[in-house]
Every structure is written in C-alpha cells, then in structure tokens.
C-alpha cells in the first residue's frame, strides 16, 4: 500500500486486520466510550504518553485529536507536553497524568502514593483504572508504530483533517476507509 496515504498505525492495522480490529475496538472504548473523563482529557493522556515515548505519529495524531476536543485547543496540549505541573489543568487531571508518566516508565513505578494523590483530588477507581490502561495501551501503540518503522504524515495538516473524522465518526471506521 501507499504509506503516504495510510501513515503511522494505519498501515499495520490494514496489513493485519485480524489484530487491527480488536486494537481499534480497544482504543474506541478507552478514548471515546461513555466516561466521566471527557474525550479531550483522555486524548490528552494518550498524547502525553506518546510524547514521552517520542512516537512522532501517535503524538502528532492524539495531540490534534485532543486539541479538537478541548476548548483551549493546541495551546493547552503544548503546555501539558512541556510540563503538566505548570499547565492550567485541574488538580485531578494533573494527578492522573503523573500516574500515566509512571506507567510509561514501568507499571512498577505506580506507587500507592501516586494513586492516593489522585484519589485525594477526586479521581474515582474507574478513572484511575482507565488512566493506567490508556497509558499502557499507548506504550503498545507507540512501539507498534515505531517498531515497524512506519512513516508519520508528511503534511502536518493531515492530523487536523483526521481529527475532524475521529471526533465525528470515531476509530472504528479507520479500517474501512
């Protein structure tokens, strides 16, 4: 296939649809399913972890998807990438991003203190669970995308266009387009 037409994870998803389908099902539930965290907040966690893994495609894509679904847009996404401690976000989201950062290093880095801090700021068990799994899932996607040496989109405008489709139709149609 033309990789320029199907950049990043889209090539491997099409190469092996039998694994591509459950991967898309997982990301759809995690990032867009009914939840107390907004889709924008969950995309922000995905973008943040992808940035820490230095995965250009995933970081560009999920930063664009987060920006499209957050009132403050890309400037807030950029601030979170630079330093979640100083970004103008809720104390709860900041505590969840600290958990996500620990997961990016290793599951074993998530301490009872980090979890307690998130709970003190009002995070529920489900929000803590989903934060851990979003961060873990992007440690998979980032490795999948870079481990196969896929290319990011050549045109930065591609991500903004993709973000409109994702915000409207979700991840499931990605294999069918």
């Amino acid at each position: 296939m033309q990789e320029s037409e199907f950049p990043g994870v889209r090539g491997p998803l099409r190469f092996r649809p039998e694994t591509g389908r459950p991967l898309l099902d997982l990301v759809e539930v995690l990032l867009r399913g009914p939840h107390s965290l907004t889709a924008g907040e969950r995309e922000l966690i995905a973008a943040y972890v992808s940035g820490r893994n230095e995965c250009t495609y995933c970081c560009s894509a999920h930063s664009a998807y987060a920006a499209a679904q957050l009132d403050e847009g890309m400037s807030l996404v950029d601030q979170v990438h630079a330093d979640p401690d100083r970004a103008p976000i809720s104390a709860k989201l900041r505590a969840l991003l600290r958990i996500a950062a620990a997961v990016q290093v290793s599951g074993r880095e998530v301490t009872a203190d980090l979890v307690e801090a998130a709970r003190t700021e009002g995070a529920t068990d489900l929000e803590i669970h989903d934060t851990v799994l979003i961060a873990a899932a992007f440690c998979m996607f980032n490795r999948y995308v870079d481990g196969l040496g896929t290319v990011p989109a050549a045109d930065p405008g591609w991500y903004a266009q993709a973000s409109e489709r994702i915000a409207t139709h979700g991840y499931l149609p990605v294999l069918d387009r």
């Binding site: 290793s106 599951g107 074993r108 998530v110 851990v132 873990a136 899932a137 440690c139 996607f141 490795r143």
Partner: peptide
C-alpha cells in the same frame, strides 16, 4: 508491544 501494555496494566494497578 502488546506485552509492554499488559505488563504495565498488571503492575500499574
């Protein structure tokens, strides 16, 4: 890659 997810899920919780 998938086990880099599952390992983090299992230990992160």
């Amino acid at each position: 890659a998938a086990f880099c997810m599952v390992n983090r899920y299992v230990d992160g919780l």
